[in-house]
Amino acid sequence: MTKLNAEDATQLPIPTDDDVLERVAVLLEGAIRRQLWTLYLDEHDVQLPLIIPTAGYPHRPDEPTPEGTAAELLANRIAEIVHTAGAAAVVIAWERPGSPESTSADRGWARAFADACRERGVAVRAQLIVHDDGVRWFAPDDYL
């Protein structure tokens, strides 16, 4: 898939890992700045017409906020969106310039975020890294 318009995105399911990777790669070709992207899926693995970038998230997931840690705050916000949008799952794309290899900071965020989402009953379909040369999966050992 080389191009994707909004109508196609809301009609073509993305049920497999390869489909998820391809969809994110089409939407986010490579890293420009450090930010987080969330894509929401319905119960049939069809992308909802909602993609949210979040720039400037803290460098550490355990950074304190008035609502707990930074990871907990982010998971709270995403849980609210999941509930409001009627999503069944969320895809997380961690955009950051650099190599495709995950760093300890990448793994720390992915792990803390996965845990916080699990505690809130939010299904995380996938976590990916958007890097200088494209998109890659986090290895399961990186955050499970």
Rank of each mutant, 00 (worst) to 15 (best):
T2P: 13
K3E: 13
K3L: 14
L4I: 12
N5T: 04
N5Y: 02
A6F: 07
E7P: 03
E7V: 09
A9T: 02
Q11E: 14
I14H: 13
D17F: 10
D17S: 13
D18L: 11
V20H: 05
E22C: 05
A25Y: 01
A25C: 03
V26N: 12
L28Y: 00
L28C: 00
E29I: 01
A31N: 04
R33Y: 01
R33S: 10
Q35I: 05
Q35M: 12
W37M: 02
W37A: 01
L39N: 01
L39D: 00
L41I: 02
D42F: 10
D42P: 12
H44Q: 13
Q47M: 10
L48C: 06
P49V: 04
I52L: 05
P53H: 01
P53I: 00
A55F: 10
G56V: 05
G56R: 05
Y57D: 02
P58V: 00
H59T: 02
R60L: 13
D62Q: 10
E63I: 05
T65I: 08
E67P: 09
A70S: 12
A71R: 03
A71D: 04
E72K: 07
E72V: 07
L74C: 11
L74I: 12
A75W: 10
I78Y: 08
I78L: 15
A79V: 11
I81D: 06
I81V: 05
V82I: 12
H83F: 12
H83G: 14
T84H: 05
A85Y: 01
A85P: 06
A87K: 03
A88N: 14
A89M: 06
V90E: 08
I92P: 09
I92Y: 09
A93W: 01
A93N: 04
W94K: 05
P97H: 10
G98E: 08
G98I: 07
S99K: 07
S99Q: 10
P100H: 13
P100A: 14
E101Q: 15
S102R: 05
S102H: 07
A105N: 11
R107Y: 00
G108R: 07
G108T: 08
A110M: 09
R111I: 01
A112S: 15
D115E: 14
A116N: 06
C117P: 15
C117L: 14
C117I: 12
R118T: 10
V122E: 14
V122S: 15
A123Y: 08
Q127T: 10
L128T: 00
I129L: 15
D132C: 07
D132M: 06
D132S: 13
G134Q: 01
V135G: 03
V135S: 03
R136I: 07
W137P: 08
A139L: 15
A139T: 09
P140M: 05
D142S: 11
D142E: 12
Y143L: 08
L144G: 13
L144M: 11
